[in-house]
Simulated assay, not measured.
Amino acid sequence: MNETASRERATLRLLDAHQVRTLLTHESALEAVREAFVLHSRREGRVFPVVREALATGGVFGIKSGDVAGQGLLGFKAAGFWPGNRAYGGEPHQATIALIDPATGRPLCIIDGNAVTTLRTGAAGGLALRALARPDPAQLCVFGTGTQARIQVDFALRLCPSLRAVRYVRADGQRHAAFEAHFAGRCDPVLARDVNAAVSESDIVITATPGNMPLFDANALRPGTHVNCVGADTKGKRELPEGILGQVRLFVDDRAQAQQIGETQWAPGTPCTEIGDLLSGNETFRRAPEDITVFDMTGLALQDLTAARILYERAVAEQAGTTLPWPW
């Protein structure tokens, strides 16, 4: 086939949320995210500057992009948060991922980014628990009951079999029947009435809210606790109390990004370690019993790209998704 004919027969593959959930398992999400962190640590993958802007509509729009030259991998995720979607039963978080051929600039695959973001962020939290939390956590406290709170707890239960108690905190202080039912048979989630007590009695604390104020008092964190911070992903957002970062061992996915839009923006001079450096072996960490560890996770474009590569390869192999003629 000559080059002209090849261009005319080119196609674009589309993968919707159902297809993503079918093709991307928890195990493959862990594999993809671990690979992304290691690529970032070795500087074999690039993370381009993040776009994150407020909109006149009340939403927040962002673009995370990057490439892995050695894998011919290039792409971006356009995503954001539209709180008004709740009024008509829609998901506030919206995301779309595009894989691009780095040799030609031609789009190869468009993927539902919500499903990918959910799994890859949950996997990032799970990898942090493996690397940073005490080896025998028994109690967990989660702030939030939305999609990301659920996937964080899901990965925690999968990777920390010693967990036996889960307390959850909601802004309105009311029980959430759907959240409790989601984990039926795996644990017995209980609404926390006293937030600080729930934090102080927990080995793992997960903050997964859209808020912009501290969720608990600094003195509630006890020695030995690990905290996964998920919600702070935009300038002005925060979930941790003032001054706490100076008292902990701080880990981030990307140092510059965490200082710009993560929890670390509130104490940008705090010494920190990129988690990819632990996973690649460039750094070591041995938890002391009194250590309080925090993982400030802002999400890397490389996580989306490695997950998208797995999805695209499996979709092509299994003839999954929808293909459209896309001559160029």
Rank of each mutant, 00 (worst) to 15 (best):
E3P: 01
A5M: 06
T11E: 13
L15F: 08
A17R: 12
T22W: 02
L24M: 14
V33E: 00
F37M: 00
L39V: 01
R42I: 02
R43A: 14
R43F: 03
E44P: 00
V47G: 04
A54I: 02
L55M: 15
T57F: 09
G58P: 04
G58I: 03
G59E: 04
F61V: 10
F61I: 12
G62Q: 03
D67W: 09
G72R: 10
F76A: 13
F76M: 09
K77F: 00
F81W: 13
N85Q: 00
Y88Q: 07
L99M: 08
T104R: 03
L108S: 13
C109E: 12
C109G: 14
C109T: 08
I110S: 11
A115N: 10
T117Q: 04
A124S: 15
L127H: 09
A131I: 05
L132A: 13
R134S: 07
D136F: 08
Q139I: 04
C141D: 01
V142N: 06
A149P: 04
I151H: 08
D154F: 09
A156P: 06
R158V: 01
L159C: 01
C160K: 08
S162T: 15
L163I: 05
R164M: 09
V166S: 14
Y168I: 01
A171E: 14
H176L: 00
A178E: 10
A181D: 14
A181E: 11
G185W: 01
D188W: 10
V190R: 14
A192I: 03
V195D: 12
N196F: 05
E201F: 01
S202M: 06
S202I: 05
D203W: 09
I204Y: 05
I206C: 10
A208R: 00
P214Q: 07
D217M: 02
D217P: 00
L221N: 00
G224M: 01
T225L: 02
T234A: 12
R238M: 08
E239N: 12
E239D: 07
L240D: 15
P241T: 11
E242T: 06
G243T: 07
G243A: 04
Q247A: 15
R249K: 15
D253W: 15
D253F: 02
A256M: 10
Q257E: 09
Q259L: 10
T270A: 14
T270W: 09
P271I: 03
T273M: 14
I275V: 13
N282H: 15
E283L: 02
E283N: 12
R287P: 08
R287N: 03
E290Q: 14
E290G: 05
D291Q: 05
V294L: 13
M297D: 11
T298G: 13
A301F: 06
A301R: 10
T306W: 06
T306Q: 11
A307L: 05
R314P: 02
R314E: 14
Q319N: 12
L324Q: 07
L324M: 11
